[in-house]
């Protein structure tokens, strides 16, 4: 029987959303599999999260250790390698923590590795079939992993329907004593909180968001003029911030701001999941992109295939003349 272990990340004593998404993922991997939550940390926080997880999971493994107070991936990897069976399937979120932990964990577990999985299609004689994307979401692929010697799999947050926290009435198994040496060559120092900019894009109901399709720093002005005409605010995708054309506080996405506007204009943005991860609250999305196959058109409400460098100024003029 397949054994599945789901790593539960949490902050300030609250499990992250993915905790409720694992059960649907596990069901698709193998409906007859056992599913166990794994919580690592220290003190009352880890106890509280483990207890909370018993509402959703029949079995919860708790690893409590003073050195696990901050989830340093190197230490968590050691703890999991000590406490979990090496032929199991271990699920981790594909986020900044999962990307830090999972590839190395698969090496130490001597297990197969599959990253950023958006769907599972079951197991056929040890080959687990999965779906993922490549090339920034432009194409989909099926991949298989031989799970006979275990697997470490990162799943894309938000890809599996969350279950309601129910009354699984699970039990907590304390495996803290199975963890051996937690000496590490990497030491966590502190978290430096992102700087606040002069505009707060999270407060705006209408965002004109520009991506790499804007092509040049001087074209940012086009977006600013449109935003002005609409009474909107300019936000952007990550490459625009990397190029230093706009400040970091204007970046929408998992490593930027989470916005909840009513209307979101995506101008020359391809629609990567890290970008869309910051667009919440189900806004009306308008996408303008010169590539008719751009993935953004899958999530937008309205799509327009045009060159934004020509389209934006014309739209601005038309709005002004109303």
């Amino acid at each position: 029987m397949t054994q599945i272990f789901a790593y539960i990340p949490f902050k300030n004593g609250n499990a992250e959303d993915v905790a409720l998404e694992y059960p649907a993922a596990a069901e698709k991997i193998d409906p007859s599999a056992s599913l166990t939550a794994v919580v690592t940390g220290t003190g009352p926080d880890v106890d509280a999260v483990a207890e909370e997880m018993t509402k959703t999971y029949k079995e919860v493994i708790k690893i409590s250790h003073a050195d696990l107070a901050y989830p340093n991936a190197e230490l968590v990897r050691k703890a999991l390698t000590d406490a979990l069976p090496h032929d199991a399937v271990i699920l981790v979120p594909h986020d900044t923590f999962g990307m830090d932990l999972a590839p190395g964990l698969s090496v130490k577990m001597d297990a197969a590795y599959a990253a950023d999985i958006v769907d599972f299609e079951g197991i056929d004689s040890n080959a687990l079939k999965m779906i993922r994307q490549e090339l920034g979401g432009a194409v989909y692929t099926h991949v298989t992993s031989d799970i006979s010697t275990g697997a470490v799999i990162t799943i894309r947050p938000g890809s599996f329907a969350p279950t309601e926290a129910g009354s699984a009435g699970g039990t907590v198994i304390d495996k803290s004593s199975e963890v051996k040496d937690l000496a590490a060559k990497r030491k966590f120092l502190e978290v430096v909180v992102a700087e606040v900019g002069d505009v707060d894009i999270t407060k705006s109901d209408v965002l004109v968001s520009v991506g790499r399709g804007i092509e040049d720093e001087e074209n940012i002005e086009l977006a600013q003029e449109l935003a002005e005409a609409m009474g909107a605010v300019v936000s952007c995708s990550r490459p625009i911030v990397d190029a230093k054309w706009l400040e970091k506080s204007r970046q929408v996405g998992t490593s930027g701001q989470t916005v909840k506007p009513k209307v979101y204009l995506a101008m020359g943005i391809s629609g990567s999941f890290q970008h869309l991860g910051g667009v919440k609250g189900n806004p009306f999305i308008v996408a303008v992109n010169k590539n008719p196959k751009a993935p953004i058109f899958q999530v937008a409400d309205v799509g327009i295939v045009e060159d934004i460098l020509e389209f934006i100024p014309e739209l601005t003029e038309a709005i002004k003349s109303q």
């Binding site: 900044t96 978290v191 930027g256």
Partner: peptide, 9 residues
């Protein structure tokens, strides 16, 4: 890390 915060190590 998430939200553009920076984890120093």
């Amino acid at each position: 890390i998430e939200g553009g915060n920076q984890e120093m190590n």
